[in-house]
Nucleic acid binder design. Structure first.
Lengths: 171, 171
DNA sequence: AGTACCATGTAAGCCGTTACATGATTCT
DNA sequence: AGAATCATGTAACGGCTTACATGGTACT
């Protein structure tokens, strides 16, 4: 995963110029399913990207906020990473680890954890449904609709699998 | 994700007593889709777990290898974590980040990256199919079969989605 | 005037990766 | 005898989280 934060920031700015504060929120919202970063990581990274001329300040706003945008060099570097750098496929998911270990629990505990997970997945699906519904008039270019659709399908598979496990352990 | 490594090691030892070396391999194989750890992290963690009396050395083998097993206290602590500790649902997936940013690429580049991903998912599915096929006589208790099934379903959804994107961008 | 939220930054410490280091056993 | 693999450990470095710190703006 080395250096991914750099491209995450570059990528979000390529979607839309933003302040560091806005990026922090986007990490929490749109990107929370695959990457996460706190403001304490984002601000220093923006400074580094600016020093490397991959982004630039395009506006100063209220409360001494700075709006950044990618430069041409930044766009080229983002493209290079997406297309030419071999992806690191490794993942880190505590939820995945828990799911992997759940068969070690006795039936009552197992069912309880599956139900906790199911409740969470259903919330997730509801949230994704809203994103999808609010997408025509949203600031998002509609090009990202398939990505939302993928999230929905993934969570649906997980939801159905959890329901099966709960049903099976109820016998 | 704080402290997850501890429970990953505890959980793997609860499945079967192992040496540090074997754990390293298991992280690379069975667990690579959700967690990963190098031997340089595993050996110190085993020492800490032993100091906390959550695991113990149950045998010395060739090449001064040590086989560890969970203690009763270790099993209780693992159960506590799985059932009572609120899961950290955050994930870290460079692949997810790439997928999220791919719509920024122009059609040719986009198709190329989708095809690269598709090739990888198909390898993954083939590997999972083998795991599933070799599962009746394997040392794994069959209780873990549903987890393998979930992996297959997830990858199948991703495969089909990638195929759709490739078809759509071919027009 | 006080509270809530917007907005940016730095420092300490933990976690994980890469690299360094050593020795035992098996196979050819 | 040499190479490959098994097996365990430590050290340096970088990335990420938590906590500390500060100030601006809007609302009541």
């Amino acid at each position: 995963m080395r250096m991914s934060l750099r491209y995450a920031v570059l990528g979000l700015l390529a979607r839309r110029p933003s302040t560091g504060y806005e990026l922090t929120q986007t990490f929490d919202r749109s990107l929370r399913s695959s990457w996460h970063a706190r403001h304490s990581q984002i601000y220093p990274e923006l400074a580094k990207l600016e020093a490397a001329a991959l982004v630039e300040v395009v506006g100063l706003g209220a409360r001494r906020s700075k709006t950044y945008a990618v430069t041409a060099a930044g766009r080229a570097e983002l493209r290079r990473w997406l297309v030419e750098v071999e992806p690191d496929r490794s993942q880190r998911s505590e939820s995945g680890l828990r799911l992997f270990l759940t068969p070690l629990l006795d039936p009552d505990d197992r069912q309880a954890t599956y139900e906790r997970d199911l409740a969470h997945v259903e919330l997730e699906l509801a949230a994704l449904g809203e994103v999808q519904a609010g997408m025509q008039n949203a600031p998002e270019p509609e090009a990202f609709a398939p990505q939302v659709e993928l999230g929905i399908r993934m969570n649906t598979v997980l939801r159905d699998w959890l329901r099966e496990q709960i049903k099976a352990s109820a016998t």
